[in-house]
Amino acid sequence: MDTRVTIAGVELKNPVMTASGTFGSGQEYGEFVDLNQLGAVVTKGVANVPWEGNPTPRIAEVHGGMMNAIGLQNPGIDVFCKRDIPYLKQFDTKIIVNVCGHSPEEYLEVVERLSDEPIDMMEINISCPNVNAGFLAFGQDAGNVEKLTAQIKKIAGRPIIMKLTPNVTDITEIARAAEAGGADALSLINTLTGMQIDVERRTFSVANKTGGVSGPAVKPIAVRMVYQVANAVKVPVIGMGGIATAEDALEFILAGATAVAVGTANFYNPRATIEVAEGIKDYMRRHKVEKLTELIGIVNAHA
């Protein structure tokens, strides 16, 4: 049985990754998960300098999911390169570093630093507000996405994954723009902007007022978007949004994802990634699937 998948020339032993921001850089989960068994570890977003993040409360529970407004707190690229990359290098897994910024210059500074580091890929979080464009997220404007992707691609020196925000009218337009800019792969979905009001306290549940909704509640939206994007571009797609079980992951794969990421589920099941990877193998055994790649996008063939 062959669970390997390849994204932009990088071969993963299985299609299961961690979703950025839900797994730190792996240290905290090391007690629960053998990182060697993961296809890749995707780290928490890192910026050119440390970010303080948002005031608390930063999270709230929503029906079947959660809402977060962490505000991308991170130690900045210096500490990250010194501490987190060497930690992850001890394991036989691929390292994908998620990058955030407020301006093209900030993204480029981080990407340039990472271009010399022993990592496998970069994932660019374009859900961040662009200070030069009235705080509209980079990922909400196709023109900006194509330009930023091209600028990053030029200096990255390794494959780049553009991580798409679902908070747009037509996600395929953004996906095509990223592909046109030279993205090697696309990942989606980031969180859906939401709001929850605590009626007893008569205020917002999270201090930031709005937060990103994730977890099982968003899965049908994520599967739909992954399906649309996989059918709109040629580059591989990494699917995420509410994956907690192997069946969830397989929905994304059948819809066209080459790999998948597990996010919010880590919080209530620290072994979720491993259980998803094992469950995919069980499914392959049950359905006599030799190569996982045979399953990618085949829902179309059955339609």
Binding site: G24, K44, G53, T56, P57, I59, Q73, F267, P270
Partner: peptide
């Protein structure tokens, strides 16, 4: 006290 998601230091929800 603070609201928590991971409980183990990974998600940065519970800072003071």
């Amino acid at each position: 006290e603070e609201h928590m998601a991971c409980g183990i230091g990974a998600c940065l929800a519970c800072v003071c």
